[in-house]
Computed example of a mutant assay.
Amino acid sequence: MPLQRARTLVRWFVQPLSGPERSFWRVVTSCLLAAVTLWLLNALNKTYTTRISYPLRWTYDADHFIPVRPLDEAVAVQVTGRGWKLLRNTLGLEVRPAEVVVRRLPISRSLPASALRPALIGTMEGLQLNAILTDTLYFEFDRLTERRLQLRLSPASDGSALPFAARFVPESVTFRGPATTLNALPNPYPVHLPQAPAGSTEGSIIVPIGGPALVQTDVEQVRVKLQPRPLLTRTLPVVPEPRNFPANRRFWLRPAAVPVQVEFFAEDSALLGPGQVRVLLDYRQLHLPDSTLQPVLMPLPARVRGARILTPTVRFSTAEALPPADSL
């Protein structure tokens, strides 16, 4: 029986849609819309007390100062007013923001919300201000300055110099923003390549400048022409590292230090020393007829662009022979 009653009820609702009574539902829908509209109009004509967020407009010396953190866009208040006025404020229709005037910059860093009462009352049309729910507005400003910096290519991700030089067009860029941020920028300013090209190129590429937050530049990108760079050379004396040598047996090597010629760029000169280059001597590679070993270079750091051992062999001798004057 319950199932039969449910089927009868569904049929009663659906049957007018498929028969000549289809207009019945149009009448029902129109009545519902009219009822909802009348209810909404009646509700909006009533008076309510509620909490809203009222928009703010900040006034300060924008030619000489800049906010270094976001300013509050609204303040929480409790108001009384008709539903129409509250709806208009919620939708942001024809709402005049309350003006917040900031003086004594950059010393001032806060403002009591009670100081906004005159501005709020003067801009709230049709609303009665009951209370300001926000205690204090906090802000931070810095002096707005400009600084012009020369440009240079930033080093590789490992800190080593890049294998090419760069010519920028323009050669310098003007940065505009907070004084504290601009004073911390390096001079010359490093420009990062989107993707470091292999080798050198005679063409040019377009590179964005970038920069910290709140800092603007007079140009958004520069043209960079890459050119090959000459390598510097230096000869380093490197003491070989013995491996697989007989234990408890005294031996000598001649020469005791192997000269290694390395190639590098000028920026890496201060970081380059004997400890950066290692040479290996493996006893298992001993050439018995003349008792010599061939030195082998260990993996080089990224700042070393090339290296070669100037001494092809190292003579090995044991305690049975007299040690040479220049041996260990």
Results as ranks from 00 to 15, higher is better:
residue 6 A to T: 05
residue 6 A to C: 04
residue 9 L to W: 11
residue 10 V to Y: 10
residue 14 V to D: 03
residue 19 G to T: 13
residue 22 R to L: 14
residue 26 R to L: 15
residue 32 L to R: 11
residue 38 L to I: 11
residue 43 A to S: 07
residue 46 K to G: 12
residue 52 I to H: 01
residue 58 W to C: 10
residue 59 T to G: 08
residue 63 D to P: 02
residue 63 D to K: 12
residue 66 I to T: 15
residue 77 V to A: 00
residue 81 G to F: 04
residue 95 V to K: 03
residue 101 V to E: 06
residue 101 V to R: 07
residue 108 S to A: 15
residue 111 L to K: 10
residue 113 A to I: 01
residue 120 L to Q: 00
residue 135 D to K: 13
residue 153 L to T: 06
residue 154 S to P: 04
residue 154 S to F: 04
residue 158 D to C: 08
residue 159 G to A: 09
residue 161 A to D: 07
residue 162 L to G: 04
residue 168 F to R: 03
residue 169 V to I: 04
residue 198 A to Q: 12
residue 207 V to L: 03
residue 220 E to T: 09
residue 220 E to D: 12
residue 225 K to R: 15
residue 226 L to T: 11
residue 234 R to H: 13
residue 243 R to V: 04
residue 246 P to N: 02
residue 248 N to K: 08
residue 249 R to H: 13
residue 264 F to N: 09
residue 277 V to C: 09
residue 278 R to L: 10
residue 283 Y to H: 12
residue 286 L to R: 00
residue 287 H to C: 02
residue 304 V to Y: 04
residue 305 R to T: 11
residue 307 A to R: 03
residue 307 A to P: 06
residue 311 T to S: 11
residue 315 R to V: 02
residue 321 A to M: 09
residue 325 A to K: 14
residue 327 S to R: 02
residue 328 L to S: 11
